[in-house]
Simulated assay, not measured.
Amino acid sequence: MTQITLDTHVSDIVTQLPQSTDLFRKLRIDFCCGGKIALKDAAEARNLGPEEVFNQVKALENKREQRESMHPASFGDRTLVSYIQEKYHDELREELPAIAPYVTRVARVHGDSNPHLLRIEEIYKELRDELLAHTEDEDENVFPLILEFLKNPTTELKEQIKPHVLELEEEHENAGRLLNELREITNDFTPPADACGTYRTVYARLEQLEKDTFDHVHLENNVLFDRVREYL
C-alpha cells in the first residue's frame, strides 16, 4: 500500500482509503472529475490548510490500521462483544447511511445505460435495512443474553438462546447471498475503464463493506457463537 503524502493525488487517496470521500465531500474537494491533483494543491484551491487536511486524512488511515492490527479471537467474552460492537456495529451505522448518496447518484445518472446499477441500488437498500435491524437486535437483546449465558450457562438460558443463535446465523447467510450477488454483477467490484470517480467510489466502498461484513460474520459465527455452542 502506497504511503499517502501531501503530493498524493486526491483520486489515489480515495482509491486507497474509500472512506475519505466523506471528508472530501464535506470539505468540497473534488475527488471525482478533478481528482487528478495533489492533496496539497486541492486543499489550497479551497483555501484550506494543506497540513490540516492531510492530518484528517491520516487520522482516517490510522483508525483503519488500528482496527486491522487487533486479534479479537483471543479476547474474553465481554471484550469480544464490545469489539464487535465498536468495530463492526458502530461502523455499519456510520458507513451504511454514508454510502447511500453515492449509490443513488450512480444509479440515477448511469442506470439507463447500465441496468445492473439499478439492481445494485436494490441490493444495497435491502442489505442496509437488514444489517441495521440485525445489529440493533444483537446489541439490545442477543448479546446481553449471550454474556449472561456464558457467565452462567443454565438450562433456562440455554433454551432462550438457541433460537436466537440459529436466527442470527440465517440472517448472516442472507447477507452473504446479497454480497455474493453484488460481487457477481460488479465483475468483482471492477468498474468500467471510463467510470467516473463517484462510480468508482461506489464499487470501492461496497467491496470494503463486503470485506468488513465477512470478517464480522466470521467473528460472530466462528468465535462468539462457538463459545455458546460449547454449552448447547
Rank of each mutant, 00 (worst) to 15 (best):
L150Q: 01
L48Y: 02
R227V: 07
T2M: 13
L132P: 06
N114Y: 13
Y88A: 07
K211H: 13
L131Y: 06
T79M: 11
D194G: 10
G35T: 01
H110W: 02
R200H: 07
E122M: 12
V142S: 09
E91Y: 15
L96R: 02
E156H: 13
E159Y: 09
V228E: 03
H89T: 03
L127G: 04
P18K: 01
K158Q: 14
L179S: 08
S20T: 01
T201A: 07
T15H: 14
F143D: 03
S69L: 12
L39W: 00
G35P: 08
E220C: 11
A204E: 02
R227L: 07
R200P: 09
L6P: 07
L157C: 08
E230I: 08
R119M: 12
P50S: 01
T213K: 06
L131V: 10
D194P: 06
H216N: 07
H172Y: 09
N221H: 07
E207R: 01
A73Y: 11
H71V: 14
I120K: 04
Y231P: 06
D194N: 13
V165C: 00
E184N: 15
G76I: 13
N152P: 07
V57N: 01
K40Y: 07
D90S: 14
C196H: 02
E52A: 12
I146W: 08
A193M: 14
Y199L: 05
V223L: 03
L168F: 01
H116Y: 15
H110T: 00
L132K: 06
D137G: 12
L232N: 09
D12C: 01
N180V: 07
A45H: 11
K162T: 09
H216K: 08
A43D: 08
L118E: 09
T154Q: 12
A98C: 10
L219T: 01
C32L: 04
Y88P: 00
N180G: 13
F214C: 08
P50H: 03
K211M: 11
T190A: 10
L80T: 01
L145I: 11
N47V: 11
L209D: 00
T186I: 02
R119K: 14
V142C: 10
T135S: 15
